[in-house]
Structure formats: C-alpha cells, structure tokens
Simulated scan of single mutants.
Amino acid sequence: MQRNISTRLLHAFVALAELKHFTRAAERCHTSQSALSVMIKKLEGMLGTTLFERDTRKVTLTPEGELFAEAATALIAEIEAAFDDMSEYVALRRGRVSIAALPSLAANGLPSVIVEYKHLYPGVKVSLHDALSDQCLALLRQGKADLALTAPGPDVQEFEARTLCSDPFYVVCPKEHALAGKKTVRVADLAGHEVIHLAKSSSVRQHVEILLREVQVVHSGFEVEHLATVAGLVKQGLGISIVPELTLFQFRQLGLVAIPLQSSKLVRPILVVRRKDRSLSVASQAMLKLIEKRLGQTAIPRKYKNF
C-alpha cells in the first residue's frame, strides 16, 4: 500500500522523540504546538498505532514508537545524504565524464582541454578512450562514453551529432622529395607518387580514397594502423602520405615537410556526438561546453604550414 509520508512528518516525529516535549519540539520544527500535535496524530493514524504516551508532565515513546524512531532517523539521514550528494554533483564538486575520441584528437587537443577542466572541477573524474570512428560510436552506444569526437560515417545517424571543426589535409614527405618545395600541393601533383596509406578502417583512409579517385597514384604497398608507423616509413623515403592537420604532431620530430593540400573535397569534419535517448549529466554538459570553446571551428589555430 502506498503511503504519502512527508519528510515534515518524519522531522516532527524525530524532534518530539528526542526532546520529549511538545513545546520545544514545535520550536525546533518552526511550527505551533497544536500543529505539531496534529502531525503526530496524523502519523499515528497512518501507522495504525500509538507512538507516544502522553500525560500532563511528560512525553515518552511507546515500544512501537521506539522501533519507528530508529527507522525514521535512518530515513532522514538517507534523504539528507541524497540531497547533499546531488548538490555536490550539480555544483561539479563530484561526478564523472567519459569521452571517446579519435586518436589524433585524444593525443593533440583534448589533453589540454582535460587539464583545464580538471583545474576548474577537480572533484570530477574524467576518462578518455582513444579509438577509431566505429569504436567511438560503439562506446557511446554501450553507455561507456558520454561524448564522442569522431568523423562522419553511416552509423552516426542514430546519434545526435554536430560539426565541431573541419580538419584539412596535408601531404607529408621528406625534405628531399620533389614536392617538398611547394607551398601548396594540388591533387594533380600527386600523380605518379607512391602513397603510404592508413588502414581502410580509419576515417582518414576513407576520405583519402575519395580524393585519389581523381588522380593516378602508385600504391606503396603499405597500409598501416598507426600514424607513428606512417611517419617512420615516410622518413625512410618509402612514399608520401596524406593526413589531416590534427595528426601532424606525429611527424614533427622526424624533420618531415607538411604541405597544405588544395582540395575543397578533402576536408575531414570532426563531429561531437551524443546519444539521442540520454540526457547529459551536468559534468558532461560542462565538458561539452569547454570542448566547443577550445576545439570548435573558430578555436583551432592553423599553425602547421611546415616543420
């Protein structure tokens, strides 16, 4: 049977149980003695038993009242703890947020955002999953990530997604390469050059294949999973590669040249993605706001013209 017992009734009962005096209990509850008496009678009626023995000189708990006092005190403590906990989460003194992101963003861009976020909200736990596009969406689908920063794909349609920024592509090559002296590279300039590819499962490869439909290049025979491997192969003169701007930090230390690629078709959108059927927590909302502020379209400086 459903009972509508308010916390006001519980507080009135506990006050009288502790003070054993109607006047003092009414003062603690900021009410009148008559109103307190009415509340106690209402509670006794709901429970179907007498909770207090009353006479002209004292108020004492009945055996049933003593049992209920333990339960009522515990209930009030739990309710107050729940409100205190929720206040901590709402004020961002506690909480957690999980992000899934493409490896390029997870290594270059997001770390500085996370540092700033943890400085603002040190009590909130942040976790980061670096994964390819399909894996980012899988983590979001499974509830293991609150937000995903990923590239477009057919599975994105089941989520709420919007463009965070656009990631233009560059040609990377050794300093001695024929293309190294150019300020920009046209698609036609790639003809006849050996190209080192990322794996077909990567969003980079999917975008590059669209570009290479327009030009005849030589497949180097290398299709690798990691950008560090691409950089090493390019360094040894085994081919050139076409990579997004956000990945260029991988090539910086090897003395390679990065040249902007002229192509309106070859820009990789970076999306911020969330589930349609789940609201973001306060902690996740704050993270999303900071990500958009620091990594949004107008926030990313274009500074990698060359090394």
Rank of each mutant, 00 (worst) to 15 (best):
A180F: 08
I259Y: 13
G237K: 07
V272N: 02
V217R: 00
V217Y: 07
L238V: 00
Q262A: 14
Q236W: 03
D277I: 04
T229Y: 06
V257H: 06
H219I: 08
K265Q: 12
R252A: 15
I196L: 13
A180R: 04
V204W: 00
R213Q: 12
V243N: 06
L248N: 03
K276S: 15
V185Q: 10
A180Y: 10
T184W: 08
L280R: 11
G239H: 10
L254T: 05
P244C: 03
V234S: 12
I196A: 08
C173S: 14
V208F: 03
G255M: 05
S264Y: 06
G255F: 08
Q236P: 01
K276L: 14
L179V: 09
S264F: 04
V243S: 00
K276P: 05
L198H: 05
G192D: 13
R252H: 13
L271F: 08
R274E: 15
L211E: 02
Y170S: 05
L261Q: 06
S220P: 14
K182D: 01
S281I: 06
S279A: 15
H197Y: 15
E209R: 10
V171N: 02
V267H: 06
L212K: 04
L254C: 06
V273P: 02
L248Y: 05
I270V: 14
A180M: 04
Q236F: 00
V234T: 12
S241I: 01
K276N: 13
V171F: 07
A258R: 02
V230E: 00
E176G: 15
A191S: 14
L266T: 08
V267P: 00
H207V: 02
L211M: 10
H197L: 13
I210E: 10
V217F: 11
R274Q: 12
H197Q: 12
R252G: 07
A199Q: 13
S203Q: 02
R213D: 11
A228V: 09
H197C: 12
H193S: 11
E245L: 07
A191E: 15
L248H: 07
A191L: 08
A231D: 01
L280W: 01
H226T: 09
